[in-house]
Design a binder for these strands. Structure first.
Lengths: 199, 199
DNA sequence: GTGCTAACCTAGGCCATCTAGGAAGATAAC
DNA sequence: GTTATCTTCCTAGATGGCCTAGGTTAGCAC
C-alpha cells in the first residue's frame, strides 16, 4: 500500500494546522494519525511523544511569528514600529490561533536557547523600541508591559472575554495610542511623580 | 464501609484544591476520586461530567476572587484603588493558580449570567476606576487595557515567561505607575495627540 | 535480484471519561 | 426495632487516547 511519506517536519506542520483548527491544547496524536490515514503508532517513528510534538510545533510557530514581526518592523521606528509589531502579532494570533498558543507554551531553557524563532522574537522585541530611547531597567519593564498587554488582549479576544458592545478594533487602536504615549512619557523617577511626566 | 460524605460542593471544593496543585487543565475525575478514596464513577452522582466540574470550579473561583477584589478596593479611590485591585488579583493568581486559571475559562453566557462571582468582578472592575472620571467609551477601553495587562502579566509570571534578571516586583510596581499615569492622562481626542495629553 | 534502511503495521498495556445497573448505608415512618 | 425509601457508592464494561515491543514491507543502492 502507498505510504503517507511522513517525516518529522511534515508531521509537525500538520500538527500546527490541526492546532489552528482545534486548539493547541487539543492536538492529539490519534487525530494527527487519522489525518494522515495512518496508525497512531506510526507517528512515534518521527516524534518522541506528544510533548515532543508540542515542542516542535512551538518552535515552528515561533519561527513563523518572528518572520512576521521582522517584516512588520523593518524600516520603521517609534509608533509606526510599535503599531506594526503589535498588529502583526495580533494578526498572527487571530489567523493562526493554534500556532499562537504554541508560542506561549513554557519551554525548557535549553530548548529556547536553540530555537531561532524564540531568540529572534526577543531581539526584535528589544530592537523595535529603540527609538523611544529608554534606558535599562525601564526598557525591560516597558517590554514586559507590552508583552503582558498583548498576550492578555489576544487571549481575551480569542476566548471572547470581551462582552461589551464597544468595538474591539477601536479599543485596540486606543490601546496602541496609550502605550505609545506611555513609552514617550515613561516615568523615570522612583514612584510618586504626579501630574506631569518629566522628559 | 464508611462513606466519604460527598456532595457537589465538597467535590467542587476539592477539585479547586487539586487545580491549585496540578493546574486547572490537569484536573481529572480519577485523581479527584482517588483523593476521596472512592471509585471514579461515584463522582458522577454529584457532577454531570468533567466539563460540568470545571465550570463549577470556575464559578467558585470567581466568587473567591470577587471577595478579594471587593476587600482590596473598599474605601479606596484613584491609584490606591488601582493598586489594591491589581495586587489582590495578582496575589490570587500566585497563591491560587488553579482557581485563577479557572476564572479565565470561557463560559457560556447563560452560566456567566448566573454566576454571582463573575458579575461582581465586572461591577467592581468598573467601579474601582470611577475616581479617574473617564467617560465611555474610554472607560471600557481602559478596563480592557487593564484586564489585558494583568492577565498577560500573571500568565507570563506563572509560566516563567520572564527570563530577564530584572526583579519582577519592581517591574510590577512600575507597571502600576505607568497605568495610573495613563489613566490620568488618558488621550481623549481621536488619535494623533502628540507630546502632551490634554486635561 | 539482494540487502538495507526507513516507514508503517499489529498487538497490547495503561489510564482516562462515562454509562448502566446493583448493593449498602442513612433516615424517617410506623 | 423493623421497614421502606432515598441517596451514596459500588462493580462491570465500553470507548478512546498515549505509548512500547516487535514484526512486515516499501523503496532505494548496488
Amino acid at each position: 500500500m502507498a505510504r503517507a511519506g511522513l517525516t518529522a517536519d511534515r508531521v509537525t506542520e500538520a500538527a500546527a494546522e490541526l492546532a489552528d483548527e482545534v486548539g493547541f491544547d487539543n492536538i492529539t496524536v490519534s487525530a494527527l494519525a487519522r489525518r494522515f490515514g495512518v496508525a497512531d503508532a506510526s507517528l512515534y517513528s518521527h516524534v518522541k511523544n506528544l510533548k515532543d510534538l508540542r515542542v516542535r510545533v512551538a518552535v515552528l510557530a515561533a519561527r513563523d511569528l518572528a518572520d512576521r514581526l521582522a517584516d512588520a518592523t523593518a524600516g520603521r521606528a517609534g509608533k509606526e514600529s510599535l503599531a506594526g509589531f503589535a498588529s502583526a502579532w495580533r494578526e498572527f494570533a487571530r489567523t493562526r490561533p493554534g500556532r499562537y498558543q504554541a508560542t506561549q507554551m513554557p519551554l525548557d531553557a535549553a530548548v529556547v536557547a536553540e530555537s531561532a524563532g524564540h531568540l529572534r522574537i526577543m531581539s526584535i522585541t528589544y530592537a523595535h523600541l529603540s527609538a523611544y530611547g529608554l534606558p535599562e531597567p525601564d526598557l525591560t519593564d516597558a517590554i514586559r508591559l507590552l508583552r503582558s498587554t498583548y498576550q492578555g488582549f489576544f487571549s481575551l479576544e480569542a476566548s471572547a472575554g470581551f462582552n461589551h458592545p464597544r468595538d474591539l478594533q477601536d479599543t485596540w487602536t486606543k490601546i496602541l495610542d496609550v502605550l505609545d504615549v506611555a513609552l514617550r512619557h515613561w516615568p523615570s523617577n522612583p514612584q510618586g511623580n504626579d501630574h506631569e511626566s518629566p522628559h
